[in-house]
Amino acid sequence: MVMTIVFYGLAALGLIISLVKSKEKTKMALKKAWKAFENILPQFLGIILLIGVILSVLSPQQISQLIGEDSGWIGVIIATVIGSITLIPGFLAFPLAAALLENGAGYMQIGAFISSLMMVGIVTMPVEFRYFGKKATFLRNGMGLIFSILVAIVMGGILS
């Protein structure tokens, strides 16, 4: 919520300053903004529906059953896979992670889950392709995956 106010505030402020300086350029900026948005809108819409499907198939209870404290490395791998596929807003991700911990998930698995949730985005790959191409997208996501497993190892070593 705060983020929304900050972003809209910044955009409004920028627009006002821009308008004062040049009406012509402001118009151009808004045109560019709309074009850039419209460019990836279809993919966003598809992705949003896909996320809805994935999240309704996987409930927190189900996830914590899969990545419980005793699930070990298999749990870490499952957590990484689930985290890579799903995409959850940050302010929902932490409460979800806390709920998973309460439901019996281990710190190691949660570390992998949170990290891959944030760094790896399989469903958003179509959008990433358009800006970075396939090679860079696979590279970034692949390294994010390895990084998430490293986070799990460190979390497991220190916290449990």
Binding site: F7, A11, G14, L15, S18, T26, K32, F37
Partner: peptide, 15 residues
């Protein structure tokens, strides 16, 4: 909540 202002800021930055 976030994308429209981000794109407006992108447009402004671009110009």
């Amino acid at each position: 909540g976030v994308l429209p202002p981000i794109f407006v800021l992108i447009g402004l930055l671009d110009v």
